[in-house]
Simulated assay, not measured.
Amino acid sequence: MSIDPQGPVLVEGPVEVVLEDGTVARSERFMVAICTCRRSRTYPWCDTSHRPREKPSPGDQVSDARAPSPVRATEQDRSCA
């Protein structure tokens, strides 16, 4: 087991966690990150919500490499069958 004071508790799986309300959360993964900050949307599993987020500055531009590619519908996508 590994404990990061700024992040989750890493536990070798499979894991069962008994929550405060008595429900049991299960994971069959070989390594499980258990949330300790309680910010996770997938609590008790860590979703990296503990990491600081930086907002881009107003003058920052997104390069073409990071920009999402346009999605084009094909005739097959438009068919109802």
Rank of each mutant, 00 (worst) to 15 (best):
M1Y: 14
M1P: 12
M1A: 15
S2H: 06
S2V: 07
P5F: 12
Q6N: 02
G7Q: 00
P8R: 05
V9A: 15
L10E: 10
L10W: 10
L10R: 08
V11L: 12
V11N: 03
E12V: 04
G13D: 02
G13S: 05
G13Y: 03
P14K: 07
P14E: 06
V15F: 10
V18K: 15
L19Y: 13
L19Q: 14
E20H: 10
E20C: 09
E20T: 08
D21C: 07
D21K: 06
G22M: 11
G22C: 13
G22W: 15
T23E: 14
V24L: 15
V24C: 13
A25I: 09
A25Q: 14
A25C: 13
A25Y: 14
A25G: 14
R26V: 15
R26L: 14
R26P: 08
S27G: 10
S27D: 08
E28K: 06
R29A: 10
F30S: 14
F30P: 14
F30L: 15
M31I: 13
V32N: 00
V32G: 00
A33L: 10
I34T: 06
I34M: 11
C35F: 11
C35H: 04
T36Q: 11
C37D: 03
C37R: 02
R38H: 01
R38N: 03
R38F: 02
R41F: 09
T42Y: 11
Y43T: 08
Y43F: 15
P44G: 07
P44T: 00
C46W: 12
C46Q: 07
C46M: 15
T48K: 05
T48S: 06
S49E: 00
H50E: 01
H50Q: 01
P52Y: 06
P52I: 02
P52H: 04
E54M: 04
K55C: 05
P56L: 06
P58H: 02
G59N: 10
G59W: 13
G59E: 12
G59A: 13
G59D: 09
V62E: 02
V62T: 01
V62C: 01
V62A: 03
V62D: 01
S63C: 07
D64G: 09
D64F: 11
A65R: 09
A67E: 07
A67G: 12
P68V: 08
S69I: 10
S69H: 13
S69V: 12
S69T: 12
S69M: 12
P70W: 13
V71I: 15
V71M: 13
R72H: 09
R72K: 05
A73T: 00
A73V: 05
A73R: 03
T74K: 02
T74D: 00
E75G: 02
E75Y: 01
Q76R: 10
Q76G: 09
D77Q: 06
D77Y: 06
D77K: 05
D77N: 07
R78P: 00
S79Q: 04
S79Y: 05
C80K: 13
A81W: 02
A81C: 02
